[in-house]
């Protein structure tokens, strides 16, 4: 898109410089700790224990990563994680978009009721045991669907999506209706294509939720066939003494032939890296949906 000012005024130059400076500083602040985690993951555990490793591994080793990648059921876990992320995220996003479209229709009869239900559901919880019984009675225990169905809706995402759809001009929908389209077609042909930024956001959020989720693997499955990557990693982490609750626990271990070993900090760091890397790789693909439309001449939809 040409025709913009071809020179920058001094104030704009200063503004730009300031902008870049602030953002760079912010970037460094955010990046450094993660870099530190990465560095520690590549540092020998015993050496890390002594502290003082900041910008570069003092005693480089790939052992930590090797140890993690040698976990026995890594392949099953990885496949399960991928499957649940892809399938779960797709299902979730579609459901959320459908539901929020219904909610965005001001003339929808059930709108008020459903809206209230959604908001209330965000702040109430019956606790673990009742929820466990619901899962159990639905036959979802030890079933892959336990990763999909309970994730189908998320009240917060529904509201956010609805808020976006609200801002789309209703004339589009009305003219489509006049042309004889029903609501389902409107959703698929018009709403979703126009809501790419929010769809991309939802894909990212739901994918991350699925990827990071381990608690459901822990409570609702036996942890073998349906194990997920995150769960396996957290299991290693839980060898850390962070899982010890109290003094009796420690003594009980020492006197019963158990051990009190802490997961070395290096392993914990390596786990963080392994758990996060896939997301970091996927995100750049999503990013273009945020970037588009901001640069000159961005086309919507």
């Amino acid at each position: 898109m040409k025709g913009k000012l071809s020179y920058r005024s001094p104030s704009e130059r200063i503004g730009n410089a300031l902008l870049y400076a602030v953002l760079t500083l912010l970037g460094v602040l955010m990046l450094y700790p993660f870099w530190n985690v990465f560095v520690l993951a590549l540092n020998e555990p015993l050496d890390t224990l002594r502290g003082g490793v900041y910008l570069w591994p003092r005693k480089f080793t790939l052992d930590n990563l090797r140890q993690i990648l040698q976990m026995r059921n890594l392949l099953t876990a990885f496949i399960n994680s991928i499957l649940r992320t892809v399938i779960g995220s797709t299902v979730s996003v579609f459901c959320i978009m459908m539901f929020s479209y219904c909610l965005s229709r001001r003339d929808f009869v059930m709108r008020g009721l459903l809206q209230r239900m959604v908001v209330i559901s965000m702040y109430i919880s019956g606790g673990l045991i009742p929820y466990y019984f619901v899962i159990r009675n639905l036959g979802l225990l030890n079933n892959f669907l336990v990763y999909i169905i309970p994730f189908m809706l998320n009240a917060f995402y529904v509201l956010v999506a609805r808020s976006f759809i609200d801002q789309l001009p209703s004339s589009l929908r009305e003219s489509a209706q006049i042309d004889g389209a029903n609501d389902l077609m409107i959703l698929i042909r018009i709403i979703i294509p126009l809501s790419l930024p929010i769809v991309a956001t939802l894909v990212l959020f739901t994918a991350v939720d699925q990827w990071n989720s381990w608690y459901d693997t822990y409570i609702y499955t036996k942890g073998t066939d349906l194990t997920t990557l995150q769960y396996e990693l957290v299991k290693v982490l839980s060898k850390s003494t962070a899982s010890i609750k109290n003094y009796e626990d420690v003594q009980s271990r020492l006197l019963s032939g158990g051990t009190v070993t802490s997961t070395p900090q290096s392993i914990r760091m390596a786990i963080t890296v392994v758990a996060t890397l896939p997301i970091l790789c996927v995100y750049p693909f999503m990013q273009r949906y945020f970037i588009q439309g901001l640069t000159l001449g961005g086309v919507k939809g």
Binding site: L128, Y132, Y218, I219, K235, S243, I244
Partner: peptide, 11 residues
């Protein structure tokens, strides 16, 4: 696993 055995036990 050692993490949150409390919750797994209660279920």
């Amino acid at each position: 696993s050692g993490m949150s055995t409390e919750e797994k036990t209660s279920t």
